[in-house]
């Protein structure tokens, strides 16, 4: 019954202060959207970094005009290495074709001749090959005849790992800021609502209402605001992801053989739940000083 009375009063509060709450929920949804967006970016960057870290690869660029016998010898040598999982020869024409298929290029680049792209061996190293071991292999292979250059992508991987680390820091800071923002926005909204409903609180306290009875509906209102804002932000994030993933997927598939993924359902549930909890907490904290009657 007490809960029923609280729910009734919370519903009335939401109805009577709907304009105030619409503004608050919009602000909170933007805040949650920032966190959701940061988490989504982080998740995909981490995935990319993991993928690169797990499947070490190298591209062995062949010298221009390499003899067929040298190329075969080189292939045999590479295949004999225990760390090499697979090997694929790519001619200049095939390299040009792949480049044009995966990269969005303008007409001037598309007009490049096939000999602008060097022939290469695409080497896939066995899973678990350490970056240091990959560098040693590259050094040894580089001494063989008929090789122009070797790309181990170590630099890329390091840059990506640094980007992921920085991203994690930014996401953490953003999450902390959003927590503060949610508590502050809900706290201020509830404070405004309380100021407008002080007479109600006074009447209830004078009739013998406990703090729990008075606070209950406001806490429910705060929880509802937080929950609604979090749900809205998740929906907007899903819509934005669906609209934009096509643009990213092609590039990611070409670069790392991976695709973008959305946040895990458990993480989405955590965002929504934390919205409700933060709303309730912000409301409870902001009410304390208004309960002295």
């Amino acid at each position: 019954m007490e809960l029923e009375a609280m729910m009734t009063r919370a519903r009335r509060g939401l109805r009577e202060e709907r304009r105030l709450y619409v503004v608050a929920v919009s602000s909170l949804a933007v805040a949650f959207l920032s966190v959701g967006g940061a988490l989504l970016a982080m998740q995909n960057l981490s995935r990319l970094a993991d993928r690169w870290g797990q499947s070490a690869r190298m591209t062995v660029y062949l010298a221009e005009g390499i003899e067929a016998a040298d190329r075969t010898q080189l292939q045999i040598t590479l295949e004999s290495l225990p760390e090499v999982a697979s090997l694929r020869h790519l001619s200049g024409a095939e390299a040009r074709e792949e480049f044009l298929a995966h990269a969005e290029v303008d007409s001037s680049l598309a007009a490049l001749p096939a000999d602008a792209f060097p022939a290469s061996f695409e080497v896939e190293l066995a899973a678990g090959t350490a970056p240091a071991r990959a560098a040693t292999i590259a050094e040894r292979v580089g001494e063989l005849r008929g090789i122009d250059d070797i790309e181990t992508y170590q630099g890329w991987h390091e840059r990506l790992a640094a980007l992921v680390r920085a991203g994690r820091g930014v996401a953490g800071a953003l999450t902390f800021l959003v927590l503060l923002c949610v508590v502050a926005v809900i706290g201020n909204t509830i404070r405004l609502a309380v100021a407008r409903r002080r007479d109600e609180i006074e009447v209830m306290k004078l009739c013998g209402a406990t703090d729990r009875f008075v606070r209950g509906p406001f806490v429910l209102e705060g929880a509802f605001q937080g929950l609604l804002a979090a749900v809205l932000s998740v929906l907007v994030l899903m819509a934005a992801f669906a609209a934009l993933r096509g643009a990213f997927d092609a590039s990611l598939a070409a670069l790392a053989g991976t695709r973008t993924v959305f946040l895990h359902p458990a993480l989405l549930a955590a965002i929504i739940l934390s919205g409700g909890l933060l709303g309730a907490a912000g409301s409870a904290v902001s009410l304390r000083r208004y309960l002295q009657v």
């Binding site: 019954m1 009375a5 009577e16 007479d199 109600e200 009447v203 209830m204 009739c207 406990t210």
Partner: peptide, 20 residues
């Protein structure tokens, strides 16, 4: 000290709602 935007019924009932 009545809540003006409540109905008469609600203003009186609040004292009993508190008593559950």
């Amino acid at each position: 000290k009545v809540v003006r935007h409540w109905t008469v019924q609600e203003n009186v009932a609040i004292a009993l709602d508190i008593l559950d």
